[in-house]
Design a protein around this nucleic acid. Structure first.
Lengths: 115, 115
DNA sequence: CTGTATCCTTATTGATACTG
DNA sequence: CAGTATCAATAAGGATACAG
């Protein structure tokens, strides 16, 4: 990252992108956020929706998301636990939107053998 | 969006986001793309720029990026090899922009103990 | 210089069982 | 139901050496 190459902008942009990816990336994070967009869900319900995730991994992922304020754990009076997508997760809307658009375009490109 | 679980929109959105993340995510992909934004670079030059990456990992990452059309490998007449960021990588600009913006905002939130 | 091969260590999963 | 604990399997990463 020398002056001639990666300068101010680069030094701002790179860590910021990494920070965001650090929180979003991984096999399950986005899926969980999307899954919770359609309503609060219980642990087992989530596990069923996200086919293939183990309880251990789901547990860890939810903790991460909670730590970053994207999801909350809510215990109802009757004792059932619900995972709730926070309003803050909406701040990811633009990111998700661009991500999705690019993903769709990219797949299309591959299907057409443009790559 | 209304139904209780994951329906049409969800089923479109989820895999598209995953596809995109699959290509972008990881410790190095974004850094490499950013590093190459400031000009073509040789293998060793890249390795020096991206402090901490091993030759093996860099090699693998570059192959991935090449496969996905984001980067090209160009051999000059004198034999030197250059890694070049393709125009297609620009299609990631919106994604990166949103990612960066969110990353900045998120860090700010954490600094202010809002999470 | 541009990588690949190898070996070794560490992180991530998966499966299963088990507790409150 | 909502998880945790444990252990085995696998994947990913680092260090070093070396070939073209």
């Amino acid at each position: 990252m020398e002056t001639a190459t990666c300068t101010d902008k680069c030094r701002t942009v790179m860590p910021a992108a990494e920070d965001a990816l650090y929180i979003i990336a991984g096999k399950w994070k986005v899926r969980i956020i999307i899954a919770l967009a359609s309503g609060d869900k219980r642990f087992n319900e989530l596990q069923r929706t996200l086919t293939g995730i183990s309880a251990r991994v789901l547990s860890n992922e939810l903790k991460d998301l909670e730590l970053n304020g994207l999801v909350s754990r809510k215990t109802l009076d009757n004792g059932t636990v619900l995972y709730v997508r926070n309003a803050y997760a909406d701040s990811l809307r633009n990111v998700m939107h661009e991500l999705v658009q690019w993903g769709i375009g990219h797949k299309e490109k591959i299907r057409n053998r443009e790559i």
